[in-house]
Design a protein around this nucleic acid. Structure first.
Lengths: 121, 121
DNA sequence: CGGAATCCGCTTTGATACTG
DNA sequence: CAGTATCAAAGCGGATTCCG
């Protein structure tokens, strides 16, 4: 496989990485993996998220088919969000990445400290 | 495990995802997995990257201990970049994510088209 | 309750020019 | 060759206000 073929193949992966690497997506996916939640329920549980970003993040997840949005036409309105099977399946590779992080976080942190020390001097 | 514990655990994963989800990191990691490369060699192979972003991306990778930078004090200067064992190990979970993308890209794309169709109407 | 609309600052990225 | 410096453009995220 030529270098250009390698990089060409990765260009399809990066967009997803960028999507789930944004500030809130993973948090919400993992939270919903425990079961459906209402809008304000998520807002309370995900510390620090603004109403705007929660709306946008959920909308994108719905658009990608990772989350379903169910409206109950009651008063006051109620909207449930739940992971689709596709969303559930995404948890597998994401948690593999999570394991890599927990296993190598200290190594990376030491590397950073050493690097920054060399620079500061 | 409580919802807050779930989201708290994910907060350590998101920073890495954000790092490798940026525009160029994955491309460079995968390219270097085939062997060391010189600066301008990478620049040629990674289509569209600017000199500035290549410098910044490589510096961050070096800082995180994923890539080594070797300077040959010749004239003209020569600098080789290579993946560390840590960088090599990162390929495993990243490629798992890559497989998920290739397996589910079509499903996601259909979901997006359907979603956008509902909106436009 | 669950949003939508607006404004605004910060960060990321790119283009360009210069250097040892 | 392998960078650094500077500037401008774009995108992301936050705070606030309004609505059915």
């Amino acid at each position: 496989m030529s270098p250009h073929e390698i990089t060409a193949g990765c260009r399809s992966v990066t967009p997803l990485l960028a999507r789930i690497g944004d500030k809130w997506t993973i948090l919400i996916v993992m939270l919903l993996s425990a079961g459906p939640r209402r809008f304000n329920e998520i807002k309370r549980l995900v510390d620090g998220i603004s109403q705007r970003m929660l709306t946008l993040t959920l909308r994108n997840l719905e658009r990608d088919g990772l989350v379903t949005r169910t409206v109950f036409p009651t008063i006051p309105p109620r909207v449930d969000y739940a992971l689709t099977p596709l969303g559930q399946s995404l948890r597998v590779p994401v948690m593999a990445l999570g394991r890599w992080v927990t296993e190598n976080r200290d190594t990376m942190e030491r590397s950073r400290t050493a690097f920054d020390g060399r620079e500061g001097a």
